[in-house]
């Protein structure tokens, strides 16, 4: 079932990370499943163990199902200085999840990440492809509610 994503790339090992990105981005639950690992393994002729090793090495990949919107809050020193801890507290409260968990409705997964390179606007988070900066508790609430509103 992943064939159409996998076959976009030549069967060489250096395309592995590209292929994994492609599979993950196209999965509604934004992760790479065991079946996908099997298929990639057969196509590239590399062991599933190698692929699993790569998947778990890089923070952008997940081997577990995730929510529709992945929130990645930066916890690096520049964001920390500008109050990322309070933002994290606020996110945990308003989503009622711990770090790494997905909300019951499957809408959000809360993750932490290292520097996103938008430090002029710290504290910063990414939700899927979009960057949100200069975060305040109020702003976070609005962003979350806006996304919830769009789903309905």
């Amino acid at each position: 079932m992943y064939e159409k994503f996998i076959k976009k790339y030549a069967p060489t090992k250096d395309n592995l990370i590209y292929i994994l990105h492609e599979i993950q981005d196209n999965h509604p639950q934004q992760y790479v499943s065991e079946e996908a690992v099997q298929e990639v393994s057969e196509y590239l002729k590399v062991s599933p163990a190698h692929i699993y090793g790569v998947l778990t090495f890089y923070t952008m990949f997940s081997t577990k199902p995730r929510g529709k919107n992945i929130i990645r809050l930066c916890e690096s020193p520049p964001c920390f200085l500008r109050g990322s801890e309070q933002i994290l507290k606020k996110l945990k409260e308003s989503l009622d999840v711990k770090i790494g968990e997905t909300t019951k409705d499957g809408l959000f997964t809360l993750e932490l990440c290292a520097c996103l390179g938008v430090c002029g606007n710290a504290p910063v988070m990414m939700i899927n492809e979009d960057v949100y900066g200069d975060l305040t508790e109020k702003k976070v609430e609005k962003i979350i509610n806006d996304i919830k509103g769009r789903q309905e």
Binding site: K13, D14, I17, V46, V54, F57, Y58, T59, F61, A114
Partner: peptide, 20 residues
């Protein structure tokens, strides 16, 4: 795909080749 250590030149090359 998100790994600070890949800024190290030999780690970067490993990553380019499709490895950890």
């Amino acid at each position: 795909a998100g790994a600070y250590v890949c800024g190290e030149e030999t780690a970067l090359i490993e990553s380019m080749e499709g490895n950890r």
